[in-house]
Write a protein that binds this DNA or RNA. Structure first.
Lengths: 336, 336
DNA sequence: CCTGCTTGCACAAACGTTTGCACAACCATA
DNA sequence: TATGGTTGTGCAAACGTTTGTGCAAGCAGG
């Protein structure tokens, strides 16, 4: 049986394994290997369709050219964007990605990380669903890692996230500027930093406008269901909001569904601002005013930070917040 | 330096590598290893935080517990759905997924496959962007593989796809049944089987209704841009359609944008039926009548087929078409 | 003819596992 | 006292690479 390995080729060409290895890894002239040998080996390699085993190579070199990405939900378009950007970035850097969907569950996350470590990935990119950073800090002592989208307080872990507080503030200020006082804020997973900071920004803007008392924050999930439920609840209350700040694209969809069912119109009956910038938001009628995060840039920067760690540059601990952008559309009306 | 490997543990506990291996891989009682040994080894393994190297294990066992998924675009929500389903299915089966985004490009696809083979993945799931199946057939001779969503003619490669012809037929029939005669069909990537078969179904329905002459098929891409362009073009023609059949969710978005810009209303001025079932379609105003594919089921079945190949059951060559479903919403009006 | 440099290649260890085989020690039976 | 089975463990090969070291042959200069 013909084996398409260095050993097989060595036997069939009569050269040693080391020579074959050097030739096939492009180090022929560095080791001054004869033309004859190079040709014979290449010829045979082509003939038997040689594919180097990255497994063996990785074992020997202690490098896998593989990275891990953990995200809370591939199905959420926002995270799909992140996955897409990370995959492309990785490819241009010569890496392959293993994707793990943690479903917003810390246990899944840990299990996933264990699996990645066992596979000796060269680095980990993570949108964490964990409550605190201790576990990750521990891992980071031995493995390159970068947080994306969600970070932790008081940690030295490198991260690239949006300035969510600013985003929350901008969105709320915009609504206030348009004359709204009774603004409902529907948040995502409470423990997550993005949600907390967006809410912070919301509160800051409300306070600044002397609206502390009318501030209302509800919900606890980045899901359509959550947006739907909280919107319905709010409008069955004695004092329904004139505007809603939906803290994610999924929450937005739920809100819209509820609003439609209630027979209300956007923006005449209720104004809406959402977080995230999904393409379909342009096609909703009306198009949704929103806070756009620069996902692509976030991923590019994160990957750069990861690569630095991998290549051993000790300039670790880089932490960045990217400014979000208010995108004005047609879902906010003036309130007199 | 303390090494967290079998060898290290063996040295530190005084047992042999083989004994340690058997203990740590849960074969202790099979080999009748003493309680004392088991305890000592487990203790030490815990202490030094032992993580088995899947690299070494894979090399030895010739099995990586890793699969590859190639898709034309993670950013397209339809493919994101597929990725999500495949990842979950894989996880329950004990596999990890490497995701490759081919961007609808055959060269990327081949490169990606080469990379996967080099990593010795146990199997490949693929939504192919290639023109024909020759290359894949070649690979399939040595590697378990299953096609998803897109298949090829006259191939023995196993696949699980939607019955796109049926879907195209159903969508078009529905429009015809509602009184439409001038129906524009905006297709996706022409060479892809889904697009071709949906168009086939469209033609069949038109022919059946004696509308061969008014049939019109345009476009060549599963993108928003394509939908937008072709819709604009169609409405600048002397004989604009009364209904549009958009062959994907992305094309639909482009069409909607164009329709809005043209100041037309759905469904009063123009009726629309789309392919794919994305959640946001429910939130467009009006909600879009569509042909829904059972993505989750498709992936489950595909993974089952793949697992059969991996476990060596020679019941290969399973090819399935799943029936799509017409979901009636509000984007089609009656035409008298 | 001896020395020393270049050229071209081979040997063998190492990476961290799994596993077939061997084997010593012990015990029970004949 | 042999014989034979059980119990607990170790040895070493194998998986497919990379790479430091060694070395023989050829050649030039003294």
């Amino acid at each position: 049986m013909q084996k398409a390995t260095l050993i097989g080729i060595a036997q069939r060409t009569g050269f040693s394994v080391s020579t074959v290895s050097r030739i096939l890894s492009g180090q022929a002239e560095k080791y001054r290997i004869s033309k004859k040998a190079v040709e014979a080996v290449c010829e045979e390699a082509r003939r038997c369709n040689y594919t180097p085993s990255l497994l063996a190579k990785s074992l020997r070199m202690n490098k896998t050219f593989t990275l891990g990405l953990l995200i809370p939900g591939v199905d959420n378009p926002y995270f799909a964007n992140i996955a897409s950007a990370v995959i492309h970035e990785a490819k241009t850097l010569g890496y392959q990605m293993i994707i793990i969907d943690t479903l917003e569950d810390a246990a899944n996350e840990r299990e996933g990380i264990a699996s990645l470590l066992s596979r000796k990935v060269d680095g980990i990119v993570i949108v964490s669903s964990d409550e605190n950073a201790d576990y990750l800090e521990e891992i980071h002592r031995t493995t390159p890692m970068v947080l994306i989208d969600r970070h932790f307080e008081g940690t030295t872990l490198p991260y690239v996230c949006s300035d969510n507080r600013q985003g929350g503030y901008d969105a709320t200020s915009h609504l206030i500027g348009m004359g709204h006082r009774n603004i409902l804020c529907i948040q995502g997973v409470r423990r997550s930093m993005p949600s907390r900071q967006r809410v912070d920004g919301y509160h800051a803007a409300m306070r600044e406008a002397g609206l502390d008392l009318t501030a209302r924050v509800v919900g606890d999930d980045f899901t359509i269901r959550n947006g739907y439920l909280e919107t319905k609840l709010a409008f069955s209350s004695p004092n329904p909001p004139t505007a809603i700040f939906a803290l994610s694209n999924t929450i937005l969809l739920g809100t819209i569904k509820a609003v439609h069912e209630l027979g209300l119109h956007i923006p005449d009956d209720v104004s809406i601002v959402a977080f995230d910038n999904q393409i379909y938001m342009d096609f909703l009628n009306p198009a949704i005013t929103r806070i756009s995060q620069s996902t692509a840039e976030m991923c590019t920067l994160a990957m750069r930070i990861l690569m630095q760690q991998i290549s051993g540059d000790s300039t670790s601990g880089v932490q960045m917040l990217l400014p979000p952008k208010l995108v004005l559309c047609d879902s906010v009306s003036i309130r007199h």
